[in-house]
Design a protein around this nucleic acid. Structure first.
Length: 423
RNA sequence: GGAGAAAUGGCAGAGCGGUUGAAUGCACCAGUCUUGAAAACUGGCAUACCGAAGGGUAUCGGGGGUUCGAAUCCCUCUUUCUCCGCCA
């Protein structure tokens, strides 16, 4: 959520910036400015009436204490007119606040200057590409066939027990999963992140805090009986740890990591996108979350990007880094780098990580602030990134490291999974 | 799940329906004193919004109500604690 003060002072820049998303926010911003002005006028009026009636109330108290009952009763008469006026104004003020709030919820974050304009993923900017496509003598076998051949993952069983998109990992498939999680967590810890195991269900306020709600409730599983949501990413509970928090100094740097399963309804997905491990309703992910001083958030973003690159290199995967264009940028993000690994058998890129800087967009909703030198509270910057999401990493590992003898594990994870080859 | 009790500032803990945004203590910050520190003393110390400023308004778990006036009374929700039941 953008800050209303920013809209007051920089509406043109916001409108200009949002064009890169293909959004024309002129009407919304102008409406907001009108509501805001009206709100301030009404509120000032309401407060002066409140002030007056507070004053009279105090006088009445004084009269009673002095035993001047008649004066007190006369003063009471005066308040009734004020009261009805106050109530009317209060209602108007409330209505305006709701309107402003709803409008603010609708406006996405403003992309940073270096974010390219664009409509879809085709306009994303390839920042760099590392490694080369693996050459195979025959055609590479897709991961779902490999998973079946080596008994690693049972998709059919998942369909029976739960439904499509909820696979069973078995034997070495399960060990690979567990090993990768531990590997990612250890790497995060080495980089200074504190490990957290959060709840996997969150309340509505948390969903609003990080921007999943309102609007995108269709993407989350909703436990209606208790009005709770299954987390679509650890970002939600990890970032909401800091909802309504004021960090007492300005030298802070919060770095947390957490492994969680993630649950996504993924309504509307179909075809090759959902084949095998490409898109699941439940998947495992290690997430990084950072809360930073605005002056240090750019640096933090770079560090996170470097961290993810390091992981992909240790896994020996051919990957590329994209700077998302305005149109592909998430609602809450000011800048996002996506990481894609090359799927040798499917011959396409698979997204395995997304690292974003939200600036104050989330912290404004979260009321997440720090206390500056002048003792005033300022909004923090929030960031997060996957490091990494498991299914597509597994898909890429299986496909890219397949040999005639089996699937070779990258050196870095051998000690984590406990074997060198899947045979 | 059933029965009771409670929810006040960073913490502890007062609070009669009327200068209570809230006593007091601790913690914290600044100053005095000191070679330095401690102690002592003095002052400061919630958040948000509106306003150029003086200042104003709101907030005592959340929401609603009674009243000229609510931290204080009523309703409701949430959470915590104690006891009982159930249970990894």
């Amino acid at each position: 959520m953008l800050e209303i003060t920013r809209i007051r002072t920089g509406s043109d820049d916001i409108i200009e910036g949002l064009k890169k998303r293909g959004v024309d926010a002129t009407a919304d911003i102008n409406a907001l400015l009108t509501y805001d002005e009206e709100w301030r006028a009404k509120k000032a009026e309401m407060e002066s009436i409140q002030s007056e009636s507070n004053k009279i109330s105090k006088e009445i108290g004084q009269f009673f204490r002095e035993g001047k009952t008649q004066e007190a009763n006369e003063a009471k008469e005066k308040t009734s007119a004020l009261k009805t006026k106050e109530q009317d104004l209060k209602q108007e003020v409330n209505e305006l606040e709701t309107k402003i709030q709803n409008k603010l919820y609708e406006i996405p974050n403003v992309p940073q200057d270096i974010v390219p304009a664009g409509k879809s993923e085709d306009d994303n900017e390839v920042v760099e590409e590392i490694g080369e496509k693996v050459k195979f003598q025959d055609k590479a076998i897709p991961h779902w066939e490999l998973a079946d051949k080596y008994g690693l993952i049972d998709f059919e069983l998942g369909v029976k027990v739960t439904g499509a998109g909820f696979p069973f990992y078995k034997g070495k498939g399960a060990k690979l999963q567990r090993g990768l999680i531990n590997f990612f967590l250890d790497e995060a810890e080495k980089a200074g992140y504190e490990e957290v195991i959060p709840p996997l269900v969150v309340n509505e306020e948390s969903g609003i805090g990080t921007g999943q709600l309102p609007d995108k409730e269709g993407q989350m599983y909703h436990v209606t009986e208790d009005d709770l949501y299954l987390i679509p990413t650890a970002e939600v509970p990890l970032t909401n740890m800091y909802r309504d928090v004021i960090i007492p100094n300005q030298d802070f740097s919060v770095k947390i990591t957490g492994f969680t399963p993630c649950f996504r309804r993924e309504a509307g997905s179909y075809g090759k996108d959902v084949r095998g491990l490409n898109r699941l309703h439940q998947f495992d992910k290690v997430e990084l979350v950072r809360i930073e001083h605005p002056d240090r958030s750019e640096k933090a973003l770079e560090e996170m990007v470097d961290h993810v690159k390091g992981l992909l290199e240790k896994l020996g995967l051919h990957y590329r880094v994209l700077r998302l264009c305005g149109g592909d940028l998430g609602f809450t993000s000011a800048i996002t780098y996506d990481f894609e690994v090359y799927s040798a058998a499917q011959e396409r890129w698979l997204e395995v990580s997304s690292v974003s800087l939200f600036e104050t967009f989330q912290s404004n909703r979260l009321k997440l602030r720090y206390r500056g030198e002048d003792k005033k509270t300022q909004l923090c910057h929030t960031l997060n990134g996957s490091a990494l999401a498991l299914p597509r990493i597994v898909a890429a590992l299986l496909e890219n490291h397949q040999t005639d003898e089996g699937i070779k594990m990258p050196e870095a994870i051998v000690k984590y999974v406990g074997f060198e080859m899947i045979k």
